[in-house]
């Protein structure tokens, strides 16, 4: 997670996403069956892929947290899940809009990817009450990591089970593997995917930087004002970064 600078990352994100959406509206051809509404595909699918990849990345950070005991990895795991859940809301909203446009209903149960995603989303949504219910910071971090690993193992299993449970395969408008897409659509899609991945990374870095700054600030305040200072509005579930440095030995 060593990124040159937040500014460079932000500029790259804006450029890439901007280019992606320009391509969506001015370059990619209209879908023969669905027309204009199909363009939500360039938002929906990259969101879903980034969200799921984010859950997996959170699992990897969680493993590193348990192995090393370094709270920085817990913070990364937390921020990854946090942003992936936010992206997940976007996935469900755009998926719902798309379903309404193409099938006339806001929700369809026979679209396995969407249903799988809902289940994964429901599971990760419990990450917050789980953290909230554990008071001791160390234990909260450790248990959250155990959750992130368990849920990470759950994601592929869940997709497998839901996919297999589809009795009839719904006529799919696009292939899940981008192989079936015409070249111009595929190119547009890949640019959008890269832009979305950059956006996710960028937001993760911003949130980590913000947490690190507020931890430093509260440490400095404590040094200035002594024991009496209590950090205002401190979230009980968000890990502070790097809480290790807050230990008095440094």
């Amino acid at each position: 997670m060593k990124v040159p600078s937040l500014r460079a990352l932000s500029i790259a994100t804006i450029l890439c996403l901007g280019a992606g959406f320009t391509l969506v509206f001015f370059y990619a051809p209209l879908d023969a069956d669905q027309g204009f509404v199909q363009k939500i595909f360039y938002l929906h699918v990259p969101l879903a892929i980034c969200s799921l990849a984010g859950f997996m990345i959170a699992g990897v950070h969680a493993i590193r947290h348990l192995r090393s005991g370094d709270p920085v990895h817990d913070a990364r795991s937390y921020v990854s899940i946090h942003l992936s859940v936010i992206f997940g809301v976007g996935v469900l909203l755009t998926g719902s809009i798309w379903a309404h446009a193409s099938w006339g209903r806001w929700w369809v149960w026979d679209e396995p990817t969407l249903v799988s995603f809902l289940i994964v989303f429901l599971l990760y949504a419990t990450y917050y009450p789980l953290r909230y219910a554990i008071e001791d910071r160390d234990r909260q971090a450790r248990y959250a990591s155990v959750f992130a690993i368990t849920a990470g193992a759950f994601v592929p299993l869940n997709f497998l089970a839901v996919r297999m449970a589809q009795s009839l395969v719904h006529p799919r408008v696009f292939a899940t593997t981008s192989g079936g897409l015409p070249g111009s659509m595929l190119f547009t899609f890949l640019v959008c995917l890269a832009g979305m991945a950059l956006l996710w990374t960028c937001l993760v870095c911003f949130e980590l930087a913000a947490k690190s700054a507020s931890a430093k600030l509260s440490r400095l305040r404590r040094a200035l004002e002594g024991e009496t200072y209590a950090a205002p509005n401190r979230s009980r579930i968000a890990p502070s970064v790097p809480s290790r440095a807050a230990s008095p030995l440094t």
């Binding site: 008071e135 001791d136 910071r137 950090a231 807050a246 230990s247 008095p248 030995l249």
Partner: peptide
């Protein structure tokens, strides 16, 4: 030597 134990932000044992 130099044992600290904190609960949350509050130290229960200092050095």
């Amino acid at each position: 030597r130099g044992l600290w134990r904190e609960f949350g932000e509050v130290p229960a044992l200092r050095d």
